[in-house]
Nucleic acid binder design. Structure first.
Lengths: 154, 154
DNA sequence: ATGTAATTGATTATCATTCTCAATTATATT
DNA sequence: AATATAATTGAGAATGATAATCAATTACAT
C-alpha cells in the first residue's frame, strides 16, 4: 500500500474515524497528482480513474488530509485554495511567474534562519510561514526577447 | 488636500478617468483607515462619515487604487481580500498571531537581499514578494502562561 | 452649453466553499 | 454473523465575496 494511504489510514484509526471507499479514492487521487492542486482537481482526478466521489466529500476530506500532515494550503492568491503534498518533503517556498504561471519551488536555509532571528527579536514564536516571490521566469523573458527581435526585423 | 487624494487625482487625470464624488469619498475613507482593510471596511467607513457609496463602486475603485500605487493586496488567508496602504511606505512583511490575530509589521534588509540572490540563482526577475509568518505573539503566550498558573492554583 | 464616454447604483450572476438532512455504511461489540 | 451506533455520504440548497449587466447619470474636453 502506498505510503500516503498508509499514513491516512493510521491517522483515521487514531481519531476513530472511518476509512471509507470515498476517502480511499481521494487519497489515491492525491497520490497520483504531482503538482499543486485545488479541491476540484481531486474531483477530476477521480473522474479520470472512471470513478466518482461527490465534491462535497472532497471538501470534507481536505481538512483531514491537512490534519494528518499529508497536504498543506499554499499560494493564496486568487480564487480557489490550492494545496500541495508535504508528507516527507522538506519545507520550501515558491516563485510564481506572472507570465506563464509556472511555479518554481526553492528552499534556502538562510531564509529560514533569518526568519527565526527576526521572530526572536519580536518575541514571536513562529509556527509556519509562507514566502512567495512573483516575477518573470527566464523562459518567458527569452520568449519576449526573441519576439521583440522578430518585430524589429519585420 | 491630503497627499492620497492628490496622488489619486493625478493618476486619474493621467488615465483620462474622472474624479467623481464617489471616488473622492473612497479615497478620503482610506486616508482615515489606519490598519489593514477589506472592501467592506471602506464601505463602512464612508457610512460612519454619514455618507454613502454603493459597494459595487467600492469594488470597482479598488483596482484603480492598486494601479495608482496607493494600496496593495496583502495577507491572503481566509475569505476576503485584505488591502493596506503603501504609498510612501517602505516594503514590509507580516507576522500574524494565530491566537489574537494581531499583525506585526517588520522589514529586514537581509531578507530582501537574500531573496534577490535566490532569484538570481534561478534566473528569475522578482517583481514583488509576500512573506507571512504565522505564530504566537508574546502577549498571547503571557496570557496563556498566567492562565495555566491560575488553573494550577485553583 | 454640449456631446460623449465614463461612472454609478441596483440588481443579478458567479463561483468556491459550506451546510443540511435523510439515507447509508464502517466498525466495535455482542 | 448480527446488531447497534456514530460517522459518513450525496444531493442540493445556502452562503458570501466579488464580478457583471444595464439603464440612468455625470464629469469634463471642446
Amino acid at each position: 500500500m502506498a505510503i500516503y494511504e498508509e499514513q491516512f489510514k493510521y491517522f483515521l484509526k487514531e481519531k476513530r474515524l472511518k476509512y471509507t471507499k470515498e476517502r480511499k479514492k481521494i487519497i489515491k487521487a492525491i497520490t497520483v497528482i504531482q503538482k499543486h492542486f485545488a479541491a476540484e482537481d481531486i474531483h477530476q482526478q477521480i473522474r479520470k480513474q472512471k470513478s466518482r466521489v461527490s465534491l462535497a466529500t472532497v471538501y470534507r476530506t481536505i481538512p483531514l488530509l491537512i490534519d494528518s500532515g499529508l497536504i498543506t494550503e499554499t499560494l493564496y492568491r486568487g480564487e480557489k485554495v490550492v494545496y500541495e503534498k508535504i508528507y516527507n518533503k522538506p519545507h520550501h517556498d515558491h516563485m510564481v511567474c506572472l507570465s506563464c504561471g509556472k511555479i518554481i519551488e526553492f528552499s534556502n536555509e538562510n531564509v529560514e534562519k533569518l526568519q527565526e532571528d527576526i521572530c526572536h527579536k519580536h518575541f514571536f514564536i513562529p509556527v509556519e510561514h509562507y514566502l512567495e516571490i512573483k516575477g518573470y521566469c527566464q523562459e518567458c523573458r527569452d520568449k519576449l526577447k526573441s519576439k521583440t527581435k522578430n518585430e524589429l526585423n519585420s
